[in-house]
Simulated assay, not measured.
Amino acid sequence: MKFAQFCQQLSKASGNAKTFMVAVVLIVIWAATGPFFHYNDTWQLIINTSTTIITFLMVFLIQNTQNRDNDILHIKIDELLRATKEAQNGALDLDDLDAKQLRTIRKEYKSMGANESIAVTESTTTLEDDPKADGGQR
């Protein structure tokens, strides 16, 4: 089994409600055994060590699944851009730009969208030209 497949399966399992309930039960059992062990250092060390190890491993698991999901989204968006005739194909290769260049492009797109607004009702959502954006001349 590949690492990516392992991470995907483990991520799905760890995000499950049953897994959460198992964790809660384990913590309740640990807390309930406190008086039996007189809340000693070993009793505290068990929960501290367990949670530290699990957290450490989950960081790598979560990062792997986020990277994979991010790559998938980029590929899907790239395909939509490539297939849309009006789209700027230059947007397909933004990965090498620095933060300042990306902010500049983002400002350009924001100014393009400034002339439109979104009308939202319970049944429909439509884009409309914003009459205030061009001085009310329509």
Rank of each mutant, 00 (worst) to 15 (best):
D71V: 04
Y109L: 14
N48F: 08
R106A: 15
R68M: 12
Q63D: 13
Q44V: 05
H74P: 00
L45S: 14
A119S: 13
D71C: 05
F3V: 10
K132R: 15
L127Q: 10
G90T: 02
T65W: 00
T19D: 03
Q137N: 13
Q63Y: 09
K132H: 06
A31D: 05
Q44F: 13
S50D: 09
Q9A: 11
F3C: 01
N48L: 13
R138Y: 14
P35E: 06
S111Q: 12
T104S: 05
G113I: 02
V25C: 05
S50Q: 11
T65A: 04
E128Q: 12
D130M: 03
V28G: 04
N64C: 14
V28S: 07
W43G: 01
R103Q: 10
F6A: 03
F36I: 14
K107D: 10
R106L: 13
Q63L: 12
L127D: 02
Q101R: 02
E86H: 04
G90E: 01
T51M: 12
I62H: 07
W43V: 03
K12Q: 10
E128C: 06
K2P: 00
Q8S: 03
L97V: 03
L127T: 12
I27P: 00
K18R: 08
T19L: 03
K85T: 15
I62P: 00
T126H: 02
Q66R: 12
I46F: 10
Q9T: 07
T121G: 11
I77K: 00
T55H: 07
I46R: 07
L102A: 05
Q137V: 12
C7W: 00
R138V: 14
A17F: 10
G90N: 09
S14Q: 09
I53L: 15
G135C: 13
Q5V: 14
W43A: 01
V25Q: 10
K107A: 08
K12V: 08
N40Q: 10
A99M: 07
V59F: 09
K100E: 08
A114C: 03
D69E: 13
V25L: 12
I53W: 06
I118Y: 02
L97N: 08
S50N: 12
T124C: 07
P131T: 11
S11N: 11
T65N: 08
T124R: 10
T124H: 10
A91E: 00
A13E: 10
G15F: 12
R68N: 03
A119E: 14
L92R: 02
I27C: 07
F6T: 02
D95I: 05
K18V: 14
F36V: 15
A99R: 06
S111A: 11
S111V: 06
L127N: 07
Q63E: 14
I75L: 08
Y39Q: 06
S111D: 09
E128M: 10
V25G: 04
E128S: 05
L81I: 05
T125E: 07
N89H: 09
G135S: 06
T49G: 07
D134S: 13
T33G: 05
V59H: 07
N67P: 01
L80G: 02
A13H: 11
Q137Y: 08
E122S: 13
D93C: 03
A13L: 12
A91Y: 01
Q5A: 14
I46T: 03
T51H: 04
Q63P: 02
Y39E: 05
N70P: 01
A17G: 05
L92K: 00
A83S: 13
I72S: 04
S14K: 03
G135V: 04
A32Y: 02
I62V: 15
T55E: 06
G135Q: 04
L61K: 02
E86A: 12
